[in-house]
Design a protein around this nucleic acid. Structure first.
Lengths: 208, 208
DNA sequence: CCCATGTGATACCGCTCGGTATCGTCCGAT
DNA sequence: ATCGGACGATACCGAGCGGTATCACATGGG
């Protein structure tokens, strides 16, 4: 279950590289990438700037590695959810939404690391951008697959709608109260599934 | 030098303050707040750093003013949409969604200025944060009002769902193709309205 | 035993940042 | 004609940044 949000930090038993990544995760998420200097990361990790450069080429590489880890965590969680409901794609999708919904408080009013990093890295050639895009692509592919397996007539549209909801919910974390966001998110996703399942008039055309 | 980047080089007829705000809008939106220095803004506005400080207390004040203008633009657009469908709240909501959907390409792969700024300003006491929060609160209040007027049984939930969709769609702008995002967004919002109108969609409880 | 390696500490470099001070100049109101 | 306020240009400041160089030490495998 990984170290919880309020990290005890500086467990000297951990090798420096892990401490650096832990510190980076904390600071990048709470303060933003550009606000955080390597000095601050080094101090939080109980080491020095030089140690960081012994393990990472540049700061950008550290950022990319951080996001790679976050992506892997999400990936693993999705694997778990998928395995919990084998052969039941609708349950998998809901489990996935529930995972996000339950994780919202842990974001502590700072939204999704990927979305935030996107805002801070307008450069599409930044190494971290590729990590994000690959992750999003994988996630979307997976979601589309689940929707297709669930027999939804338009799995791509359904997946896109669910993605909107998931990301919108994470953004909403950043202002106001989080209390109801999780429940609201679950209801949206349920609604999307219901609507895509039932042919109950696929809503009128928008062309107006 | 690079006086002309991609813009029709602000003509000198505009007063400096407007030129500065125009330049700030461009650069803040495309590069991010923290990546852009006052020097760059001054150059793009065809003036100097000193001129900026004659019109704005600090850089943070300039950022806040920029977001205030963006918020006013949105507000005005919402007024327009509302006036186009007097007494027809559902049409107003759809018109609102359409306004966002049609505006997506204009964001040119850089998402919503508010969401991006949120990511770059973790400090809740930052003057720009208050602008954002007030704007979001107003927008939500307005949307809830429309949903209530439309006779939806749970206007707050409906408004929250629509907000998820709107923000999620804007985030989705940042990676991949925009082509279908607008259409998808419209369909989600239509779906949300339909489901909230018809009792058939109450569906199961989320508690499990 | 000894040396290579990884580590912590410190000092430093060049650059850019937000912000300030100081000029000379232009222009419009009086 | 003049005078004051806004303007453009430039130089500067202290601070922080990413990144580099150097040195001392500790430790563990040959």
């Amino acid at each position: 279950m990984a170290s919880t949000a309020s990290r005890p930090s500086r467990v000297a038993t951990l090798p420096p590289r892990e401490r650096i990544l832990d510190a980076a995760e904390e600071l990048f998420h709470h303060e933003g990438i550009r606000r955080v200097g390597l000095q601050a990361i080094a101090e939080r990790a109980g080491t020095t700037k030089m140690a960081i450069y012994r393990h990472f080429e540049t700061k950008d590489a550290l950022v990319a590695e951080w996001l790679r880890i976050v992506a892997a965590d999400y990936q693993a969680a999705f694997d778990r959810v998928e395995a919990e409901h084998p052969g039941r794609p609708a349950e998998q999708i809901l489990g996935l939404a529930r995972f996000i919904a339950e994780g919202l408080p842990r974001l502590s009013h700072r939204g999704c690391p990927f979305i935030n990093s996107l805002a801070e890295l307008p450069d599409r050639s930044h190494p971290a951008r590729q990590v994000i895009e690959q992750h999003k692509a994988r996630q979307t592919r997976r979601l589309v697959g689940m929707c297709a397996q669930a027999g939804l007539p338009d799995p791509e549209q359904a997946a896109a709608e669910i993605t909107f909801a998931l990301e919108g919910a994470q953004v909403s974390t950043q202002n106001g109260s989080i209390d109801q966001v999780g429940d609201r998110l679950m209801r949206v996703v349920e609604g999307i599934l219901d609507r895509h399942r039932s042919p109950s008039g696929a809503s009128r055309s928008t062309t107006d």
